[in-house]
């Protein structure tokens, strides 16, 4: 029970990060490996704002999210947009380059010492024989709520419908008069904001460091593979599934095999269900 609930809490954060990546990749078709850096930037900025500027946690989180959005938009228009007609390899290489540059700069600014944003929720509650920290419950609730709101944004607003149209067929969408540049901006802003929320809330519960970006990106990619690309809502289940698999693997197998088991599970899903557990057709609905 404890492991299951641990996995659910961790999984919702993975899902929130993956939701941002799905949004960006779905609309823009950019392999945005620097998405995890948005999480890192937000977490570090939140911690810095709270500990150095002495802002309350909520304001600190706002600073973190703003920084994350700014970072995403910067990469969008300084790196990816000018290369939009280049081969995907160029974009892939650029996004990996952005990871290295961002991490180097972050280490120079903040060092690589892990830190936790003070002022998070304290205390725990019990479910059966499991003890769940309130901070985890808050983390999971915020993640689920933000994913839900984003799913609504995508399905119920004009901007969301435009993004879905671009995800389905960018060329046709452009011919139909959908503003591509504006939708790139919206996708990067919203996707990076999701990463920002994840980073800032995560930093109040778990330690964040300047080197966490790539790990986070890989976790998000696994979630997307499990859930199937294309749907923001389905990543929630993909995230929870990853969290639970991770927690159970960590309990059943010795520490050294935890990551291997997660990737083994992912490979099994890829072979058995190449479009993810929820299938591409459903995911694009």
């Amino acid at each position: 029970m404890q492991e299951l609930l641990n996995g659910v809490a961790q999984g919702t954060v993975y899902a929130l990060i993956a939701a941002g990546l799905v949004l960006i990749f779905g609309v823009v078709r950019v392999p945005h490996f620097a998405h995890g850096e948005s999480v890192m930037v937000s977490g570090m900025m939140t911690c810095w704002a709270v500990t150095s500027l002495h802002l309350p946690v909520l304001l600190g989180a706002a600073v973190g999210v703003a920084a994350s959005v700014g970072y995403g938009l910067f990469l969008c228009f300084a790196v990816y947009w000018p290369m939009r007609n280049h081969p995907e390899w160029n974009l892939l290489a650029s996004s990996l380059g952005a990871v290295v540059i961002t991490q180097t700069a972050a280490i120079a600014i903040w060092t690589s010492t892990p830190r936790v944003t003070p002022g998070g929720v304290s205390g725990s509650f019990e479910i059966g024989d499991a003890i769940i920290p309130w901070s985890w419950a808050v983390l999971a609730a915020i993640s689920a709520a933000v994913i839900g709101a984003t799913a609504l944004l995508v399905s119920r607003t004009t901007a969301g419908v435009s993004m879905k149209a671009m995800a389905a067929d960018a060329e046709t969408a452009q011919l139909m008069g959908i503003p591509v540049r504006k939708n790139w901006a919206i996708a990067f802003a919203v996707g990076s904001a999701l990463a920002g929320v994840a980073g800032s809330v995560y930093s109040t519960v778990f330690p964040v460091s300047t080197t966490l970006g790539l790990d986070v990106t890989f976790s998000a990619l696994v979630v997307i593979i499990l859930a199937g690309i294309g749907s923001v809502a389905h990543v929630l289940w993909g995230g929870v599934l990853l969290g639970v698999v991770e927690a159970v693997a960590g309990t059943v197998f010795p520490g050294g095999y935890q990551d291997s088991m997660v990737f083994l599970f992912m490979l099994v899903v890829l072979v058995a269900r190449p479009n993810g557990l929820f299938g591409l057709e459903r995911a694009r609905d």
């Binding site: 404890q2 641990n6 778990f206």
Partner: peptide, 19 residues
């Protein structure tokens, strides 16, 4: 021995094993 990795952000599995 209950293993963990330097720089780990999560010790839930290890804590569950101890409990």
């Amino acid at each position: 021995p209950v293993d963990f990795e330097m720089g780990a952000t999560q010790f839930s599995s290890q804590i569950a094993a101890l409990k």
